[in-house]
Protein backbone atom coordinates (compact mmCIF):
# COMPACT_ATOMS: atom_id res chain seq x y z
CA UNK A 1 0.00 0.00 0.00
CA UNK A 2 2.84 2.43 0.87
CA UNK A 3 4.43 1.92 -2.53
CA UNK A 4 1.11 2.48 -4.29
CA UNK A 5 0.44 5.68 -2.29
CA UNK A 6 3.90 7.03 -3.16
CA UNK A 7 3.37 6.27 -6.86
CA UNK A 8 -0.11 7.74 -6.76
CA UNK A 9 1.12 10.93 -5.15
CA UNK A 10 3.73 11.34 -7.89
CA UNK A 11 1.12 10.73 -10.59
CA UNK A 12 -1.35 13.19 -9.06
CA UNK A 13 1.28 15.92 -8.86
CA UNK A 14 2.28 15.34 -12.48
CA UNK A 15 -1.24 15.05 -13.87
CA UNK A 16 -2.58 18.11 -12.04
CA UNK A 17 0.50 20.36 -12.47
CA UNK A 18 0.74 21.04 -8.75
CA UNK A 19 3.78 23.29 -8.80
CA UNK A 20 2.65 25.45 -5.90
CA UNK A 21 3.09 22.73 -3.27
CA UNK A 22 5.81 20.21 -2.56
CA UNK A 23 4.85 16.51 -2.56
CA UNK A 24 6.43 16.09 0.89
CA UNK A 25 4.07 18.73 2.30
CA UNK A 26 1.02 16.59 1.59
CA UNK A 27 0.33 13.58 3.78
CA UNK A 28 -1.45 10.49 2.52
CA UNK A 29 -4.38 11.18 4.89
CA UNK A 30 -4.78 14.85 4.02
CA UNK A 31 -7.87 15.91 2.04
CA UNK A 32 -7.20 16.58 -1.64
CA UNK A 33 -10.08 19.03 -2.02
CA UNK A 34 -11.06 22.04 0.06
CA UNK A 35 -8.47 22.93 2.68
CA UNK A 36 -6.00 20.24 1.53
CA UNK A 37 -4.52 20.64 -1.93
CA UNK A 38 -7.34 22.96 -2.94
CA UNK A 39 -8.30 20.95 -6.01
CA UNK A 40 -11.30 21.96 -8.13
CA UNK A 41 -13.94 20.21 -10.27
CA UNK A 42 -11.65 19.98 -13.32
CA UNK A 43 -9.05 18.30 -11.12
CA UNK A 44 -11.72 15.80 -10.05
CA UNK A 45 -12.28 14.92 -13.71
CA UNK A 46 -8.52 14.56 -14.19
CA UNK A 47 -8.40 12.13 -11.25
CA UNK A 48 -11.15 10.05 -12.86
CA UNK A 49 -9.09 10.01 -16.09
CA UNK A 50 -5.99 9.04 -14.10
CA UNK A 51 -7.78 6.06 -12.51
CA UNK A 52 -8.93 4.93 -15.91
CA UNK A 53 -5.68 5.53 -17.76
CA UNK A 54 -3.12 4.25 -15.25
CA UNK A 55 -5.10 1.62 -13.38
CA UNK A 56 -7.82 0.61 -15.84
CA UNK A 57 -10.54 1.41 -13.31
CA UNK A 58 -13.73 3.05 -14.50
CA UNK A 59 -15.67 4.83 -11.80
CA UNK A 60 -18.96 2.91 -11.70
CA UNK A 61 -20.85 5.33 -9.49
CA UNK A 62 -19.86 9.04 -9.73
CA UNK A 63 -21.65 9.68 -6.43
CA UNK A 64 -18.84 7.75 -4.73
CA UNK A 65 -16.31 10.29 -6.04
CA UNK A 66 -16.02 12.45 -2.90
CA UNK A 67 -15.33 9.34 -0.79
CA UNK A 68 -12.84 7.80 -3.22
CA UNK A 69 -10.97 11.05 -3.92
CA UNK A 70 -10.94 12.27 -0.33
CA UNK A 71 -7.21 11.58 0.07
CA UNK A 72 -4.34 9.71 -1.52
CA UNK A 73 -4.97 6.92 1.01
CA UNK A 74 -8.65 6.51 0.08
CA UNK A 75 -7.73 6.50 -3.61
CA UNK A 76 -5.09 3.84 -3.03
CA UNK A 77 -7.58 1.72 -1.06
CA UNK A 78 -10.10 2.00 -3.89
CA UNK A 79 -7.47 1.02 -6.46
CA UNK A 80 -6.35 -1.95 -4.35
CA UNK A 81 -9.93 -3.19 -3.88
CA UNK A 82 -10.91 -2.82 -7.50
CA UNK A 83 -7.73 -4.25 -9.00
CA UNK A 84 -8.31 -7.45 -7.03
CA UNK A 85 -11.69 -7.96 -8.66
Amino acid sequence: MDELMATLKKEIFEQLNLHHVKPEDIGYDQPLFGEGLGLDSIDALELIVLLQQKYGIKLANPAEGPKIFYSIKTMAEYITDHKKQ
Binding site: L16, N17, I42, D43, L45, E46, V49, Q52, Q53
Partner: peptide, 10 residues
Amino acid sequence: MLAPSPALFV
Protein backbone atom coordinates in the same frame (compact mmCIF):
# COMPACT_ATOMS: atom_id res chain seq x y z
CA MET B 1 -5.82 9.54 -28.55
CA LEU B 2 -5.48 7.96 -25.09
CA ALA B 3 -7.86 9.67 -22.69
CA PRO B 4 -9.13 13.21 -23.37
CA SER B 5 -7.85 15.58 -20.72
CA PRO B 6 -10.59 17.75 -19.12
CA ALA B 7 -7.92 20.20 -17.94
CA LEU B 8 -6.78 20.74 -21.54
CA PHE B 9 -10.30 20.80 -22.93
CA VAL B 10 -11.29 23.83 -20.84
